[in-house]
Design a protein around this nucleic acid. Structure first.
Length: 887
RNA sequence: AGGCACGUAGCUCAGUGGCUAGAGCACCACCUUGACACGGUGGGGGUCGGCGGUUCAAUCCCGCCCGUGCCUACCA
């Protein structure tokens, strides 16, 4: 249907439904966008026109969480804004599927455990139901390939659930750029990263005491530590001194007594100075250990003198290194005490028989059991190293103390000497802080988090994990004639071989048959820390090492959206990798979203059990309404899950539907926007566009939304739309110019406001846009329409009086109030009234009085000058209202 | 213990060195209106955490204190 030239055609409101049904419309538009490729990245356009988003890959096996909806919506709002400004948005989505969370979920889902010793069973069928039935028994042991297959199966399912939610939320990803962190490309790029770091000398393998989780039986990195305050107890134990004497130490870990390798106190401590240089004798095991001074010993703590064990904490490691102490590792990888024998080399004892007798009670026990038993043994007088009564000289004193845990773990971390791979980061601390300063953080104070973390870093990055579902470390070791690994000469693959699985692939120059035989080779079985791969998300998306041209176009990225709790991991490691690989920052901006709190303002988390499943909320209120809630929160600020805000969002959607229906139902002769009120409205609208655009450029979407919303309600629908209704429908021939101006301005207002709202509420804006605006510029979707700008206002003369809109509004409101005071409906006609205002205001009113009086349905009016009224204020007097019309 | 952020109406939050500090929700009253009753109009509601300082002027800037949250440190 083409409109006659010179006439603005209207839509037929009767053809539209009475009410907008988000549940039906949203999935429909999702399909339209998918089919049209509305959000596709165009690789043909130059870098300068491209905007690259380094999207966080969610942990696919994690639960769907309102926090996801919240922060991903923030990013999507930014993406949609940038896209409308004409830039070519690269907005990929990946799934972080490797790692412990997936393994744990799979273990529970199928009730299985991975055991690399079990042979592969290609026929193995795992079912959730049967797993549930077998929960009675111990978990079934399955081979590593079977376990990985189970992981892949579960993550695919989980990813589909996420994808459904993301699609429904209207996140404008380019789904062609979907990837998995366990996928072939990610594995290749992660392994290449390792090769590159190795070549540059940033990687090494070390045998050293490492933070160790005894349940996962896996090394972890400093960034995965979590402090927890837990109950403990001081135990006062009396030690002997060789050559005579005794002293009492305080320890919270008596179960490590057998691992005691030294005793230390502060050098200035008069109570203990006489002991330095002598040998102490441990109770129970009668092991002679050196007593040495150390500045690190705090005279205020405990008794001021303490035992050094291998290893109770990080300070023990330092003492052990600096003082060349013995290594007596009694804690095994499974958290149980090792079967050691006193009397041999490194395990000296002045009474080996007694030591072994006592230790026999402890070997094989876990740490809690061992603690309980060793305390019992220390209550026996014959355990004394001094012959003066029981070594436990006082009842244990209960305390609350802070203990390091793996953030996903359940038992305290131990320090266990193991061989691990490390990326050397400590030498780069200053450089990494400087890199962080080159990045714009939003909000700015998030940079402090990064700097604090980097400055306090005290360990290199342990990147090896003794787990199964992850990217294999691409290394083999040559075996010597005795079949021992030569750790000094690891064999790395060549780049074209990547990705490799060293447990099945064969290194160059070897035959498969040489695996595991003396003179042959042996595979590294460890996998990478998941962050080793996740820290490469910009490079995974840019196809680093696979497509140089694409990489140059997409790396570094423009923006990294993320949550603040993973600044120390994801942001930090990504910055570190980009620095070590290419000497640059991985992005220009970081935008940090807050957390979602439950209605009691508590952080929503799985462990608190207060997580709400988002999809039912989306179905109840519509995605636009949920997005409105997310969009109204500023970056970095935590937001409470608030259904009242969802309702406000839903109301906005309804209002957009109805206002759009009204504005587009008006027709009239084509005419420029020329009437005073219309020009005043356009001028205010242009101000809004400038202000909202500035807010978006400052990464302040919440302000843009607030201003747009405020204008939409309190200027467009409540005011302007009411004021021009009559003129927009005036059929009189002599009113044609005014009518055409009103219709044009109504449409301009709708068109601009829809576009300003489009990043926040993409569905309803697309819906209304589709009724008539779509296709006007050859582009059907509002989400590819140009962001409002001065161009929308070209040729519109400024109003004669800049406050005309506000004058009209104030006068209209005064008449409304008079009607309300008389309990008369706003639509009732007014026979006559007198409008009072100061002379200046009356003069301004003259410019717009026609619109005000016809909108208020005033038949006759008089004006009265009243000097004591403030500028812009009106008083209504002597109003006579018409009788209510008979229906 | 250190760092960062926050503290404004019953609730959720804007805001500014200067008119009488705002919005939404909630609450109260009123209005069938022609886009919308999934709507509209009007109204009540504040010691801007406390104390001090700078200033002609402080909710805003500075200092101290109190409270909340997060990050980091604290393992004998």
């Amino acid at each position: 249907m083409t409109a006659p030239k010179g006439h603005i055609a209207a839509i037929d409101p009767a053809s539209l439904p009475k009410h907008y049904d988000a549940a039906a419309a949203e999935p429909r538009w999702g399909e339209v966008w998918e089919r049209a490729g509305t959000y596709h990245y165009d690789p043909g356009r130059p870098r300068a026109e491209t905007y690259v988003i380094d999207t966080p890959p969610p942990t696919a096996s994690g639960s769907l969480h309102p926090g996801h909806v919240f922060s991903y919506t923030h990013t999507d709002i930014l993406a949609r804004y940038v896209r409308m400004t004409g830039r070519n948005v690269f907005y990929p989505i990946g799934w972080d599927d490797n790692g412990l969370p997936t393994e744990r979920r799979v273990q529970n889902y199928f009730h299985i455990r991975c055991d690399p010793g079990v042979p592969y069973d290609p026929e193995l069928v795992l079912e959730e139901a049967s797993a549930r039935a077998s929960k009675e028994g111990p978990p079934r042991k399955v081979s590593r390939p079977n376990f990985i297959a189970a992981c892949e199966r579960v993550t695919r399912q989980d990813e589909q659930a996420f994808k459904r939610l993301w699609t429904r939320m209207g996140l404008s990803f380019d789904w062609r750029e979907e990837y998995q962190t366990i996928g072939t490309r990610s594995r290749r790029i992660a392994q290449y990263s390792f090769l590159d770091l190795w070549r540059k000398g940033h990687v090494e393998s070390r045998y050293a005491p490492t933070l160790w989780d005894v349940d996962f039986q896996c090394a972890i990195a400093q960034a995965e530590l979590e402090d927890r305050t837990v109950p403990g107890a001081y135990h006062d134990l009396e030690f002997g001194v060789e050559g005579g004497g005794r002293f009492t130490i305080s320890t919270t870990r008596p179960e490590l007594l057998a691992a005691c390798v030294g005793v230390t106190a502060h050098p200035e401590d008069a109570r203990h100075r006489h002991l330095f240089g002598k040998l102490a004798l441990t109770p129970l095991f009668r092991v002679p250990v050196p007593i040495f001074p150390s500045e690190k010993a705090d005279p205020e703590k405990g008794t001021g003198i303490l035992m050094v064990c291998t290893f109770g904490d990080a300070t023990d490691v330092k003492w052990w290194r600096e003082h060349g102490l013995s290594l007596r590792q009694i804690v095994q990888r499974d958290g149980r005490l090792a079967p050691v024998v006193f009397g041999g080399e490194g395990w000296e004892s002045r009474d080996a028989a007694a030591a072994n007798h006592a230790y026999a009670e402890l070997a094989g026990k876990n740490l809690n059991q061992a603690r309980k038993r060793v305390v019992e043994l220390l209550r026996e007088p014959d355990a004394s190293a001094t012959g003066q009564g029981a070594p436990l000289v006082a009842e244990p004193r209960a305390i609350q103390h802070v203990v390091k845990y793996y953030e996903k773990g359940e038992r305290p971390l131990e320090l266990v000497p193991t061989r691990q791979w490390f990326v050397r980061l400590l030498p780069w601390k200053d450089a990494l802080i400087e890199q962080g300063a080159r990045i714009q953080w939003h909000p700015g104070y998030m940079q402090h988090r990064y700097e604090d973390w980097t400055r306090n870093l005290n360990q290199d990055w342990c990147i090896s994990r003794q787990r199964y579902f992850g990217v294999p470390i691409p290394v083999w070791f040559p075996l010597d004639a005795e079949g021992r690994r030569d750790y000094e000469k690891p064999i790395l693959p060549d780049e074209p071989q990547l990705p490799v699985d060293p447990t099945t692939d064969v290194p160059r120059g070897y035959e498969a048959a040489q695996r595991g035989v003396p003179g042959g080779f042996d595979a590294e079985t460890d996998i990478f820390d998941t962050w080793f791969t996740s820290s490469l998300t910009p490079q995974i998306s840019s196809h680093w090492t696979l497509d140089a041209e694409r990489h140059a176009k997409l790396f570094p990225a423009d923006v990294r959206p993320q949550a603040h709790d993973i600044i120390r991991t994801w942001a930090f490691y990504t910055i570190a990798k980009a620095w070590l690989h290419e000497g640059r920052t991985p992005w220009d901006d970081v935008v940090v979203s807050g957390f979602v709190l439950d209605p009691e303002r508590k952080k929503m988390s799985k462990s608190r059990g207060n997580v709400v499943t988002p999809l039912p909320l989306v179905e109840e209120y519509g995605a636009d309404a949920i997005r409105y809630w997310a969009g109204s929160a500023r970056l970095g600020v935590d937001a409470a899950l608030d259904e009242q805000v969802f309702r406000v969002g839903k109301r906005l959607v309804t209002k957009l539907f109805n206002a759009g229906k009204f504005a587009l139902a008006q027709s009239g002769p084509a005419h420029p926007i020329a009437s005073e009120l219309d020009r005043a409205f356009a001028a205010r609208l242009a101000e809004l566009v400038r202000s909202a655009t500035r807010a978006f450029e400052d990464k302040n979407h919440a302000q843009a939304l607030q201003e747009t919303e405020s204008f939409f309600w309190s200027r467009y629908t409540d005011v302007y739309l009411e004021l021009v209704k009559a003129r927009a429908r005036d059929e009189a021939a002599e009113a044609a110019a005014g009518r055409g101006s009103a219709v044009a301005a109504l449409r301009l207002g709708l068109s601009v406001l829809l576009r300003l709202f489009a990043p926040f509420v993409p569905y309803i804006t697309e819906e209304v846009w589709s009724w008539q605006f779509a296709g006007e510029r050859g582009e059907p979707s509002i989400h590819r329409a140009p962001w409002p700008s001065e161009r929308d206002f070209a040729g519109i003369a400024p109003p004669a009086e800049s406050a005309s809109l506000e004058i009209a509004m104030a006068c209209f409101a005064a008449i409304h109030k008079a009607k309300a005071d008389a309990s008369v409906s706003a639509g009732r006609e007014v026979e006559r009234l007198t409008l009072a205002a100061n002379p200046k205001t009356l003069a301004k009113l003259a410019l717009v009085a026609g619109d005000v009086l016809s909108a208020a349905r005033v038949r006759e009016h008089a004006l009265a000058a009243q000097d004591d009224l403030a500028d812009g204020a009106f008083a209504v007097r002597d109003a006579v209202f018409a009788e209510r019309a008979e229906s």
